[in-house]
Write a protein that binds this DNA or RNA. Structure first.
Lengths: 338, 338
DNA sequence: GAGTAGAGACCTTGGCAGGTA
DNA sequence: GTACCTGCCAAGGTCTCTACT
């Protein structure tokens, strides 16, 4: 336990009120007394107890963050940005992991609520009206990130469906005439897929259907064999669009053994810099999302009655090397050696 | 602000003491009263305020963690493990980033101290007696990770010098007769290198000097040109050992354009799974380090006067593909196509 | 005496009314 | 009247002492 203002008061033979005036540079204290108190505080290593202060003020200056895990650079980069932005505003960050389990997520939110964080940034696994009611009942200012809940919550994300649509159109523009969309459930098998993944899928379908492009959606957890079958089934120039970089990277591992087709990921997660060939993907600027989430959360802490708002962060196609124009794909060259 | 025990007391027409007895299953209360209070608590959505509790108990059930950043998977994987282990013990984790600046680190520790975390896990940038005195003066239980301070602190890490020595012997065993050790300063140029990096360097030097193996240590921040020069300077079968995976990956980028030499990294950081060719490296089990750090910190919170202890976590050589036996390196084949 | 409940102190900081020289 | 200081109250949960049935 640290040194308290009471101990300083005893040490200096004054009252706590006087110590308070000295520490906060308030009027009504002799310069001499003030100096003595400040010196004693420094000597004893006094650090104000924000716990006591928050009890009085009803503010802990702490934000809670709930994400799946921190092994995935998607989340750790987001947390990095959140932490830094929060620090600039004088807030600390408490982190809890859901491990992609709705039950854990529930516990995590409750745990943060018990610790009276001033606000919450959640990348939810949970969904449904029960879960949303629970969040609302916590009375915590909440900003949702990455995986949409209902419109009553603030939500920061790229526009998933339009981004997938853009990616699809871009692929078609490169000359591909058949597209396989790989979107297995993220995380535990049998689980419902995340809203963000489904939105991407719908964006994809919208474009291929509108333009009558032959396509397949592969949603098996064990997608690699199915992908091989699908690839063999047509001689049209075929592209594979994945709902997440992780699938694209797994496929890229197989690709190296000689298979040929365009390949595109989704998210532009942190590790891609050193991957060869450079993965074509869609940038999901998680750092920016994290910062905007903090920004919005701070607003909401000020004015808890703001209506839910959707903040759309711009996405961007990262050309990479795995989706060359069909022309160069058909004539094997250095850039298509994947 | 949430519902308080006082409000429950008023609602039920009893005193706060009675509410306390009901909520904590203490004796001295009628079953009937207890049920009524528990029901009221559930109905009103009561969540105990751990701030109040920690004020009286002197425990916040929160651990502080200070690392450089979370973009580097080295730190985010460690934090993942720390958070999970802490959660199992009922602790929350507050995270602060130093951005590899001693000044920020100082602020971070102070900030966590103000928030009265029960203990601290630090991967320090700071060093020197002043910094150590500051940490000791905080009176916080501290476990140091990755970058050694003095023996008065608990320290959890792989044995850096022996690990580098092992790697060096392993390289020699593969037939290489000349080794270049790449150890530029991690982080801001001009900064003193981390203790861990220097320990690795000394482990390397010990072996090459003992076995009279020709070698060079490259410490320039701009190490790539120097490396090219050194590689060209001898016809001995040469290996490059890096003090961190990041350098090895940068070098691997250049390697692909045709250069030939053995290459080895250090740390086995998270993104390596998808890198081709598979990087030969030394496993630094950051998850295990994180868990042990929490374990030790919890012990120290119980008994603050324990003497500083060094916990050594076993390292391991990950063969990969970038350090083939010299024989196969000289006869170009599929496995040496890097 | 045993079972049940209430009143008040305590942890910390900060703010304010009131008191003394 | 001014400069300075004391002491009480608030926040929420916990624990002990006391009192009633």
């Amino acid at each position: 336990m640290g040194v308290t203002s009471k101990e300083i008061a005893q040490f200096c033979g004054v009252s706590r009120g006087t110590v308070d005036r000295a520490l906060h540079d308030k009027p009504g204290i002799r310069a001499e007394t003030r100096t003595a108190i400040l010196q004693a505080a420094a000597e004893l290593g006094y650090v104000p107890d924000l716990i006591g202060r928050s009890l009085v003020r009803g503010r802990t200056m702490t934000l809670g963050v709930v994400v799946f895990n921190l092994k995935n650079p998607y989340f750790s980069q987001m947390l990095d940005a959140i932490t830094e932005r929060a620090r600039q505003a004088g807030y600390a960050v408490m982190i809890m992991l859901s491990g992609q389990s709705a039950e854990n997520e529930f516990q995590a939110v409750r745990s943060l609520q018990e610790r009276r964080v001033d606000g919450l940034i959640v990348h939810p696994v949970g969904c449904g009206t029960d879960y949303e009611a629970f969040l609302h009942k916590s009375r915590l200012p909440v900003v949702v990130v990455g995986n949409r809940l209902s419109a009553s919550f603030d939500f920061v994300s790229i526009a998933n469906a339009p981004a997938a649509a853009d990616a699809t159109r871009w692929i078609i523009g490169r000359g591909y005439r058949r597209i396989l969309f790989v979107a297995p459930p993220l995380g535990k098998p049998g689980q419902v897929n995340l809203a963000a993944q489904l939105e991407r899928q719908s964006g994809f379908l919208q474009v291929v259907q509108a333009q009558a492009v032959p396509h397949r959606v592969i949603i098996q957890a064990d997608y690699l064999p199915e992908l091989q079958v699908q690839l063999a089934e047509s001689s049209l120039p075929t592209a594979v669009l994945c709902s997440s970089d992780v699938f694209a990277l797994e496929i890229l591992d197989v690709w190296r053994s000689g298979n040929r087709a365009g390949l595109m990921g989704f998210d532009h997660t942190g590790w891609l810099k050193y991957i060869h060939p450079r993965l074509t993907t869609v940038d999901n600027p998680v750092g920016e999302i994290g910062r905007q989430a903090v920004e919005r959360l701070l607003e909401r802490i000020q004015k808890p009655d703001l209506p839910g708002q959707e903040l759309v962060v711009p996405h961007q196609i990262i050309p990479g090397e795995t989706m060359p124009p069909v022309a160069s794909l058909l004539i094997p060259g250095p850039s298509s050696s994947c």
